[in-house]
Amino acid sequence: MKRYAYLTYLGTDDYLTGTLALIEELKNVKSKYPIYVLIANDLGKKTIYQIETIYQIETKAKIIKSQKFKIPNEILEHNNQTGYSRWNRTFEKLQVFWLEQFDKIVMLDSDMLIKSNIDELFEKPSLSAVAAGKDYPGNEKWDNLNSGTMVITPSKLEFTRLIKLIGDDTLGDQDVIQKAYPSWNKNESLHLSDIYNMISGFEAYYVGIKKLKNIKIVHFTHKVKPWKMNKIYRFKYICSLVVRQIIKCNSFLGIKSSIKDFLIYCKICDQCSPKTK
């Protein structure tokens, strides 16, 4: 029997809502494979208690504790000084390569809306991912992978190789993986459609102008996540989205799709928020 699993990473306390929302979404689309959450060792005691007791029972997701490995202080300090401190925690996501108890893993970020079943991703080759947003105006030079959605065949040897590549030129896990696989952008067999990792800010353009249909995953990559927005902030976000997209693509169809997915995601996050438990 094939040992397949979905996996997401909970690296900070304030991502608990996003993690719970992702689990709920995978259940809603009737994914047939188990869901695992890789949790950081230094989460708050309350978060660890919630995810290991209450939510593990309620969601039926399984927990894997992150192994500690040392990131050079100069790299962490460099990120702090250049305004990229939030990427420091993402290095731990590289442990997905360590988990040889699985034959294949579909790794998903915890700030995603899963709109429909994506089990077919397990049939894709290892390191399949999306060069997310490559067709959006201004991104003409972007042709590399986004680590938000990845298909991985774990290998401890590969994990060891990746860890050795962490340096001043790697802000987080995505940079390390890009560095490890410099020819990925030329291997089209590994390129997934944007439907599997649609950057939320680009959705209106892809739907309205590129006529992309059947988007399966929307990725909310902006710094302030929907579950941290109050009603006023969400309203301002929608207004800003409408203005930006009218200027960019002037497509009512695309704007409607983008707003609809944002509101759906907000609703799921609100339902999964620990505050409402």
Results as ranks from 00 to 15, higher is better:
residue 266 C to K: 15
residue 261 D to S: 08
residue 102 F to G: 01
residue 45 K to I: 09
residue 113 L to Q: 09
residue 34 P to G: 11
residue 223 K to Y: 02
residue 73 N to P: 03
residue 216 K to N: 07
residue 207 V to A: 04
residue 85 S to R: 12
residue 42 D to H: 15
residue 16 L to E: 04
residue 273 S to A: 12
residue 35 I to S: 01
residue 15 Y to H: 15
residue 42 D to T: 14
residue 138 G to E: 02
residue 146 N to Q: 13
residue 237 Y to P: 07
residue 191 H to D: 03
residue 169 D to V: 00
residue 28 N to W: 02
residue 67 Q to M: 11
residue 247 I to V: 13
residue 239 C to H: 09
residue 5 A to V: 09
residue 55 Y to P: 02
residue 179 K to H: 06
residue 16 L to S: 09
residue 31 S to L: 00
residue 51 I to H: 04
residue 175 D to K: 10
residue 63 I to V: 10
residue 243 V to F: 10
residue 113 L to G: 01
residue 262 F to I: 04
residue 125 P to R: 00
residue 153 T to R: 13
residue 96 V to R: 12
residue 151 V to M: 03
residue 81 Q to W: 07
residue 236 K to Y: 12
residue 24 E to R: 14
residue 248 K to Y: 04
residue 164 K to N: 11
residue 18 G to M: 08
residue 21 A to S: 15
residue 158 E to C: 07
residue 264 I to K: 15
residue 64 I to G: 09
residue 97 F to N: 03
residue 101 Q to P: 03
residue 169 D to H: 00
residue 102 F to M: 05
residue 62 K to I: 09
residue 257 S to H: 14
residue 1 M to F: 06
residue 222 H to F: 12
residue 210 K to L: 11
residue 20 L to E: 01
residue 234 R to P: 00
residue 32 K to C: 05
residue 157 L to T: 13
residue 107 M to N: 12
residue 244 R to V: 05
residue 243 V to S: 13
residue 74 E to M: 08
residue 255 I to R: 05
residue 172 G to N: 09
residue 81 Q to T: 12
residue 96 V to M: 13
residue 242 V to N: 11
residue 257 S to R: 15
residue 9 Y to S: 05
residue 183 S to Y: 05
residue 36 Y to T: 10
residue 52 E to Y: 03
residue 256 K to H: 14
residue 151 V to N: 02
residue 259 I to C: 00
residue 37 V to P: 03
residue 178 Q to T: 07
residue 143 D to Q: 13
residue 122 F to V: 02
residue 65 K to A: 08
residue 232 I to F: 09
residue 184 W to Q: 05
residue 257 S to W: 08
residue 86 R to P: 08
residue 2 K to H: 10
residue 165 L to W: 00
residue 206 Y to G: 07
residue 215 I to N: 03
residue 253 L to K: 13
residue 3 R to P: 05
residue 266 C to V: 07
residue 236 K to H: 11
residue 250 N to Q: 11
residue 159 F to A: 00
residue 141 K to A: 14
residue 219 H to P: 09
residue 192 L to Y: 10
residue 201 G to F: 11
residue 277 K to S: 10
residue 105 I to H: 00
residue 43 L to A: 07
residue 47 T to M: 07
residue 201 G to S: 12
residue 49 Y to D: 14
residue 78 H to G: 04
residue 30 K to F: 14
residue 95 Q to S: 02
residue 269 C to R: 06
residue 255 I to H: 07
residue 10 L to N: 01
residue 233 Y to V: 10
residue 185 N to A: 15
residue 109 D to K: 01
residue 145 L to D: 04
residue 92 E to A: 09
residue 153 T to A: 10
residue 109 D to L: 00
residue 200 S to M: 06
residue 237 Y to D: 13
residue 127 L to T: 13
residue 10 L to P: 02
residue 137 P to E: 03
residue 73 N to Y: 08
residue 61 A to L: 06
residue 32 K to R: 14
residue 23 I to R: 11
residue 19 T to K: 04
residue 222 H to T: 11
residue 72 P to S: 09
residue 86 R to T: 13
residue 227 W to K: 03
residue 149 T to Y: 08
